[in-house]
Amino acid sequence: MAIGTSIAFAELFRNLVTSVNEDFLANLPERIFRFVGNRYYKVRIPNANLYELLTREIDKALKRDEDTLTFCERVGSEAYLGETLPCVLFIVKKFRENPQRAILEAVNYTWDSDTIASIVGAIMGAIYGKSAFRKEWIDGLSGRLLINGKDGVIFEMIDEVKSWLSS
Rank of each mutant, 00 (worst) to 15 (best):
G4L: 02
I127R: 08
K93F: 00
S77T: 12
V107A: 06
E11I: 04
N47D: 15
D151A: 06
G76W: 04
N47Q: 14
L12M: 08
T18G: 02
P46Q: 09
N27S: 15
A10P: 04
G143C: 02
F9P: 01
D151K: 15
M157N: 14
P46E: 12
G76Y: 08
K130S: 10
D114M: 06
M124T: 03
I7T: 05
F35P: 03
L62I: 13
W164M: 10
G121C: 06
K135A: 08
V36R: 03
L141F: 03
Y80T: 05
I127Q: 10
E156N: 10
E105F: 13
R134N: 10
I158T: 05
K63Q: 12
N108D: 13
E78K: 11
G121T: 02
M124Q: 09
R134L: 13
V107M: 04
I32N: 05
D139G: 04
L50R: 04
Y80W: 09
G152N: 09
D114G: 04
N21S: 15
D59H: 07
S166M: 04
K93E: 00
G149W: 01
A106G: 07
L104Y: 05
R101H: 07
A79F: 08
Y51Q: 02
A102D: 08
A117F: 01
A2V: 13
L28M: 11
N38S: 14
L62H: 05
L12Y: 10
D67N: 15
I123M: 06
R101L: 14
M1S: 06
G152F: 01
R56A: 12
D59G: 01
M124V: 01
F24I: 13
G82H: 09
I119T: 12
L62S: 12
R44C: 03
K162G: 12
E160I: 01
I116Q: 01
S167Y: 10
K94D: 00
A26R: 08
S131Q: 12
M124I: 03
E83W: 02
K60L: 11
R64E: 14
I32M: 00
F95E: 07
F133W: 00
F35W: 08
A79D: 10
A61C: 10
D139L: 00
E66V: 04
W137N: 01
A8P: 14
I119G: 07
K93A: 00
N38Y: 02
I32G: 03
K63R: 10
N47I: 00
A79V: 11
G121D: 02
L145H: 01
N49G: 10
F90W: 02
R144M: 05
Y41G: 12
N148I: 03
A79C: 14
K63P: 03
A26G: 00
T5P: 07
A102T: 05
Y41W: 10
W111K: 14
I123V: 13
V153H: 05
R56K: 11
L89P: 09
I7C: 11
